[in-house]
């Protein structure tokens, strides 16, 4: 019963989300509904608010307004069903831990407060490293991994979480071809298992091959829908071309006024 219900409910729905950094709006009235079992690519120019969107959805950034539902409930209720893969550059890779330690972090929620990591947890982390093809590097200090291997470590950490919805911030950025294929294989396995992933992506060429839904974002939703319908030249021009000059002007004016006060 539970599984059939979870098949039908929306993994993520966002309504009228507005986010601002120090009064400067970065996302305006963003709304979309992610269907279950889909791979959603988030595409847009630099500064379009892609990372901000993921962080705001996960309540890592305060929102000005808007409603966000995970599987029909709040984030706090469904935390265990949501996995987050931050940008690779967001952490200090000189931190004194090895790849296996990083992957084990994905289990910390299941392990629970105050409890220690045990052998069974490490075995599961190891299995995830195997799945992404770098089990032999498990005991390397993480700065000794290549960019692609670091990204795979993050992916393995997401895998052990066993979530139903994954939010990934540029897992394909600056990785080698082999890692790109490995990440893609993992995404497809997730989809085959009925999971959902929302992925920030930079390479427009590969969007139609990788994702069945696409969210074109530039401070607001330019278009959202099945890739075959939405990923058109016209929409891309709207996203990347006309940089919403009026909106920017208003934003700039607001900031100036804030300064004069």
């Amino acid at each position: 019963m539970t599984s059939s219900r979870s098949q039908n409910e929306l993994p993520l729905s966002v309504y009228d989300l507005t986010v601002a950094y120090q009064r400067k709006p970065v996302l305006w009235d963003v709304g979309f509904e992610v269907p279950p079992g889909s791979l959603v690519g988030v595409v847009g120019p630099n500064g379009a608010g892609k990372s901000t969107l993921l962080k705001a959805v996960l309540e890592l950034l305060p929102k000005v307004s808007g409603q966000i539902r995970f599987f029909g409930g709040s984030y706090a209720e469904n935390r265990h069903r949501v996995g987050y893969v931050p940008q690779r550059e967001s952490v200090d890779w000189d931190f004194p831990i090895d790849a296996l330690d990083v992957v084990t972090m994905g289990l910390y929620r299941q392990i629970g407060w105050f409890r220690r990591v045990n052998r069974a947890h490490r075995d599961r982390a190891m299995a995830a490293l195997e799945q992404v093809g770098i089990a032999d590097l498990a005991h390397r200090q993480i700065s000794q991994l290549s960019g692609g291997q670091q990204q795979r470590t993050f992916l393995a950490r997401a895998l052990v979480q066993g979530a139903d919805l994954y939010l990934m911030d540029e897992p394909f950025a600056a990785v080698d071809a082999a890692t790109e294929l490995a990440v893609l294989a993992v995404l497809r396995e997730m989809k085959a298992a009925g999971k959902t992933a929302m992925v920030i992506h930079h390479d427009l060429q590969t969007v139609p091959h990788y994702f069945d839904y696409v969210l074109l974002l530039n401070m607001r939703v330019v278009a959202f829908g099945p890739t075959s319908e939405v990923f058109t030249t016209e929409n891309l021009q709207k996203t990347y071309g006309g940089r919403l000059t009026l909106l920017e002007e208003a934003t700039h004016a607001m900031r100036e006024r804030g300064r004069q006060r």
Partner: peptide
């Protein structure tokens, strides 16, 4: 190590 993952 990873404050945003931790908070999430």
């Amino acid at each position: 190590f990873d404050p945003s993952m931790s908070t999430a």
